[in-house]
Design a protein around this nucleic acid. Structure first.
Length: 502
RNA sequence: GCCGCUAUCGUCUAGGGGUUAGGACGGAUGGUUCUCAGCCAUCAAACCGGGGUUCGAAUCCCCGUAGCGGUACCA
């Protein structure tokens, strides 16, 4: 029993869905559990699946694996939808496992009837002891399958006397299970190492290994693309499918996304550092995140790093997915992000940046659009993230800023007499700017250069001193752009204020 | 403990029986410039170890080692 159940000959699932209806069409799925936000590894899994589907003109299915009722929440379900939508990963069909319990129940009944599953009355405490013992004995399995052979006295005691609520376990076969993997290759799994997995909890809720493979069959999934953390589940799921006579999808296990010390990125250890939403909030563009994440484990050739979504769809291929884990390198993400930001037209970039100004309370809807665009243009290629717009431009909207201490020390001077000199210079510059006939870039530039050159002052010194006076910082767009954008009144107001501060 | 997977610059990777082992990010240096960013130029930086097979191994095989993943009534 167990190794080749009669059911294995069936072509159709018990629910009667004809497999032939979508024969040959690629169908893949992403099956997140809604126990938190979508994390970066999940986004990559989703992307690989989605690209694979798009490449083959297939369907991408979103399946919420929420059989862990204790941990699943509606909120995180919606967060996952949100994150996927933001990334532009759309799905063709959607299922929620907790709504499909009848389906799983039918299969469980089938497994019991065909003697491929059995009730297990062990308590968690007993299981822990069994596990400890197995470990001490260096056993390959941690459950000894004792409930496979229960006497009627045992059952009497468990059910009648002690009123135990049983779990249901699958009977693993005693023949090797061949596992084929599109990324990792083929191998045979020794049945001695296979656990009689719990497939239904004592509260009646089915478990992942059962629901996953049932749904893959029910939904006619052709390829299961998922992280290698699921590699050890694969033979178990295949065994369940075989016992049920279900068609087994092809598997492709993709390597893990690792942190800088080589460990798997996880919510548990990395907090919101791995949350897709965090990157959204910080001003990363979805194209950048997609482009970054796809190159974690996948490559096209030795020439191309930048891929548009259309190109990815065209070029993505499981054969070019590597086998080893990839470290998440934020620097590379930043590089890609600035690339994609710079790619945006000034108008689009302004649109992208406006929410960040608004969130900071720097602008409201009455702000002049062309002025904002001029600011964005002046900032130029200085944005790594959209959020960088704040330190780069805050001073355009308010004169309530700190004079950056380090900059002050360097350019205004650390000593009394140096400050005096700076004060004098700013006073002169103020006078020049007051007298300048017009406030356009060229006029101002000519006037200031004339002043520095005639007085043998280094251009850098004058400009940086002035920059701090106007912006509080030592970095940023061309100062002449800033002067023009700030306007005469504001400039002539800020310089005296700075002199005062000196 | 047990089971499994993996191994090319710091990182992402290309390549693969004979190559100066290629690219990108990051780093360093120089140039441009009012600063920063950018841009341009240059540089440093790798085939885990040991055995085989072979005329020849980073590449194929074996063995180690290391790292990682799993080992739940999570997914």
């Amino acid at each position: 029993m167990g190794k080749n159940p009669e059911g294995a000959k069936m072509n159709d699932t018990p629910s009667g869905t004809p497999v032939s209806a979508v024969k040959d069409q690629v169908r893949v799925r992403m099956a997140p559990s809604p126990t938190g936000y979508l994390h970066i590894g999940g986004a990559r899994t989703a992307l690989f699946n989605w690209l694979f589907a798009k490449h083959h003109n297939g369907k991408f299915i979103l399946r919420i694996d929420d059989t862990d009722t204790a941990r699943s929440t509606d909120e995180s379900m919606h967060e996952i939808y949100d994150a996927l939508r933001w990334l532009g990963i759309n799905w063709d069909e959607q299922y929620v496992q907790s709504e499909r319990r009848n389906i799983y129940n039918r299969y469980v009944t089938q497994l019991i009837h065909s003697d491929n599953a059995y009730f297990c009355y062990c308590t968690p405490e007993e299981l822990e002891d069994i596990r400890a013992q197995a470990r001490a004995d260096k056993q390959p399995r941690s459950y000894d399958r004792r409930c496979r052979h229960l006497t009627s006295e045992d059952l009497d005691r468990f059910i009648v006397v002690e009123d135990r609520r049983p779990t249901i376990r699958i009977k693993m076969p005693d023949t090797p299970i061949p596992v084929e993997d599109l990324v990792l290759g083929s191998r045979n799994i020794d049945p001695e190492t296979l656990e009689d997995e719990v497939i239904v909890r004592s509260n009646g809720m089915p478990n992942y290994n059962l629901t996953s493979i049932i749904d893959d069959a029910e939904m006619q999934i052709t390829h299961v693309i998922r992280g290698t953390e699921h590699l050890n589940n694969t033979p178990k799921q295949i065994a369940i499918a075989n016992a049920l006579g279900l068609k087994v999808p092809q598997f492709a296990h993709i390597p893990l996304v690792l942190d800088s010390s080589g460990r798997k990125m996880s919510k548990r250890h990395h907090g919101d550092l791995v949350a897709v939403n965090r990157y959204r909030e910080q001003g990363y563009l979805p194209e950048a995140v997609l482009n970054f994440v796809v190159r974690l484990g996948w490559s096209y050739d030795d020439k191309q790093e930048i891929f548009s979504v259309d190109e990815l769809i065209e070029k993505f291929d499981l054969e070019r997915v590597g086998k080893s884990g990839s470290v998440f390198d934020i620097k590379k993400l930043e590089w890609l992000n600035s690339h994609y930001i710079n790619q945006l037209s000034i108008s689009a970039r302004t649109d992208a940046v406006i929410p960040f100004w608004q969130a900071e309370g720097l602008i409201n809807s009455t702000e002049r659009r062309d002025w904002l665009e001029d600011i964005v243009e002046a900032v130029g290629e200085r944005l790594t993230t959209l959020q960088d717009i704040l330190p780069q431009t805050r001073y355009f909207f308010t004169d309530e800023f700190e004079y950056e201490p380090k900059a002050v020390k360097k350019w205004w001077g650390g000593s009394e007499e140096k400050r005096e000199k700076t004060s004098e210079m700013l006073t002169n510059l103020l006078q020049i700017l007051e007298e300048v006939p017009s406030f356009d870039i060229e006029t101002v530039e000519t006037a200031i250069w004339k002043y520095t050159d005639e007085n043998d002052i280094k251009r850098v010194a004058a400009m940086q001193a002035l920059r701090i006076a106007l912006t509080g910082t030592s970095f940023g767009p061309s100062l002449f752009d800033i002067v023009a954008l700030l306007g005469r009144d504001e400039v002539l107001k800020r310089i005296p204020k700075a002199i005062e501060h000196l």
